[in-house]
């Protein structure tokens, strides 16, 4: 029996050292949906993806992917589960000692016994999908930031995983690539029957393609809803984020002592 929800996060808390980052997050991702996770910089979005990928273990609560509790798997189980996950890292994380082609082919070569011809076709298809078939023989150092991210995207979907996590897929893209990438994520999700988790700051672009949105702030989910709900929402937090206003409940600053004290004014 397949679970309806591919990802289920229940009351998860996590902190680096003594500083808590997440304080009881609940989130579910239905199969076949594109879910956006939004929130201000440093609120713990990347951390959330790392918890789902099992790179860090929750201090409290459970993270379940396809019914398995990620934090409790042994290394073998974790690796088995990860074969069904693709992840686009925030900074690409391409293997710098391999060409673009070899980067995309990496998982196919590691995890399948496909002949080199078949691998070649698959890799070129994925590269074509991100518009970089012509760049197959370049090395990562020869790519621009946006191109590197698109290659990383092609690499993340190379094995056609069931869950793909995108950490800031839109950052550093020009408006054309931005629209194309957004549509690509939507199309891949629909045609391959994937589930996509998209961490992003790009509210306008992502609202066009997502089914459901979660807003993270101060370590908890402060708002959630479908794209229409979010556009229409009058919650101050959501309103501020959607319209990019500087004043509102979202603090722009990392927690710090009073500015006046730091500058030694009036002391």
């Amino acid at each position: 029996m397949q679970h309806d929800n591919l990802v289920e996060i229940e009351d998860v808390a996590f902190g680096y050292g003594t500083r808590p980052v997440l304080k009881g997050v609940n989130l579910t991702a239905k199969r076949g949906q594109v879910i956006a996770i939004m929130g201000s910089s440093g609120c713990g979005k990347t951390t959330l993806l790392r918890l789902i990928g099992g790179q860090i273990k929750p201090g409290q609560g459970t993270v379940r992917v396809a019914g398995e509790s990620v934090g409790e798997l042994d290394p073998a189980g974790l690796y088995r589960l990860r074969r069904k996950m693709g992840m686009l890292f925030q900074f690409g994380a391409l293997f710098t000692d391999m060409s673009v082609f070899d980067n995309v082919a990496f998982q196919l070569r590691e995890h399948t016994d496909l002949p080199e011809d078949a691998i070649r076709d698959l890799v070129l298809m994925k590269l074509h999908a991100v518009g970089l078939r012509g760049a197959a023989q370049l090395m990562p150092a020869e790519l621009s930031g946006g191109m590197a991210r698109r290659v990383a995207l092609a690499r993340a979907i190379a094995l056609e995983p069931t869950l793909v996590m995108y950490d800031e897929p839109f950052a550093g893209l020009d408006p054309i690539s931005l629209g194309v990438t957004g549509n690509l994520i939507r199309r891949l999700t629909d045609t391959l029957g994937l589930t996509s988790l998209v961490v992003t700051h790009d509210v306008q672009e992502s609202l066009k393609i997502v089914d459901y949105v979660y807003f993270v702030s101060e370590g908890v989910i402060v708002a959630k809803g479908s794209a229409e709900d979010i556009r229409a929402s009058d919650l101050p937090y959501v309103h501020q984020f959607v319209h990019g206003e500087a004043d509102g409940p979202v603090p722009f600053h990392y927690p710090a002592p009073s500015y006046a004290d730091d500058l030694r004014l009036g002391g």
């Binding site: 790179q55 690796y79 990860r82 992840m87 890292f89 994380a93 391409l94 293997f95």
Partner: peptide, 25 residues
């Protein structure tokens, strides 16, 4: 230097996420 930079640029994490053990590979 090579391994350190691979770690700093998250290449080792990326490999782990692709279910390939960096110690072995």
């Amino acid at each position: 230097a090579e391994i350190g930079l691979m770690k700093a640029t998250e290449q080792l994490s990326a490999m782990e996420m692709m279910a390939v053990d960096p110690i072995a590979r």
